[in-house]
């Protein structure tokens, strides 16, 4: 059953605008439409200038994280029927806005790169696979789901307060390797996360866990990294 929705979008075009403003749009939507479908309709039928990132449209690529009715979502993973007829869309908080819903992701990826997000294993390479038991695999499985969308990091008040904080996503990525039985650089990553920009900035607010579109237990993962630091166990 088609419904009428009123959509407010936070806009800013550096080529023409002095300061941000709101555009407002009334349109028909299906309850099962994704917010991304709604944005596409606005762009393709009402206002070609509207700018946002998108690609896969089903919650895999992580392009379209944004703030929708005050919460971080992927626009392609939240449906109109779950939001009601008034929808407010804003860019992610805590990263500089480039245009409309597009933010500068460089700081986010800089933090990602800083935690050594790759397997380190200096042993001679075996001719077949390295063995890993299902239990050892299970230990870090949850944090392999991260799609680097930044929904968690930009929902974190500690990150809003200081962009130096590496943020939940970078810690999730570090967790993925720290607890991988094949990896040999856990101590180096823990040193990085033990600094003032690391895990101790986390105040266990759980915004990150609520925001994660892949339902990763982000706060739990951060807790496990903290425990590893306190008890030197991983």
């Amino acid at each position: 059953m088609t419904m009428r929705v009123h959509v407010k979008v936070r806009r800013f075009d550096p080529d023409t605008d002095q300061s941000p403003w709101w555009s407002e749009h009334d349109l028909d939507a299906e309850p099962s439409d994704r917010v991304l479908d709604v944005l596409n309709k606005i762009k393709w039928e009402q206002d070609g200038k509207l700018a946002y990132r998108r690609s896969c449209a089903h919650g895999i690529c992580g392009s379209d994280a944004m703030r929708i009715n005050g919460m971080n979502y992927l626009a392609c993973k939240v449906l109109v029927k779950d939001l009601g007829s008034n929808i407010t869309v804003e860019p992610l908080l805590g990263l500089p806005v480039i245009k409309d819903l597009i933010v500068d992701m460089e700081l986010f990826f800089e933090h990602y790169r800083s935690i050594m997000p790759y397997l380190v294993n200096n042993d001679p390479v075996p001719t077949k696979e390295r063995l890993q038991s299902p239990e050892e695999h299970e230990r870090y499985d949850d944090t392999t789901k991260c799609i680097l969308c930044a929904a968690c990091t930009t929902s974190c008040p500690s990150f809003w307060a200081t962009g130096d904080y590496l943020g939940p996503s970078a810690i999730v990525q570090a967790h993925r390797f720290i607890f991988d039985s094949r990896d040999q650089a856990a101590a180096d990553r823990l040193d990085i996360l033990n600094q003032s920009s690391g895990v101790w900035r986390c105040r266990t607010i759980y915004n990150c866990t609520s925001a994660c579109p892949k339902e990763i237990k982000v706060t739990k993962a951060i807790g496990e990294v903290k425990k590893a630091l306190l008890f030197n166990r991983f």
């Binding site: 397997l119 077949k128 696979e129 299902p134 050892e136 695999h137 870090y140 094949r182």
Partner: peptide, 20 residues
């Protein structure tokens, strides 16, 4: 090539023996 991906760190599901 699949072994090479595993050596790069790809987290394959495992058999009870720890194989891919």
């Amino acid at each position: 090539l699949v072994y090479e991906m595993e050596h790069m760190g790809l987290p394959f599901d495992r058999t009870p023996e720890g194989l891919i």
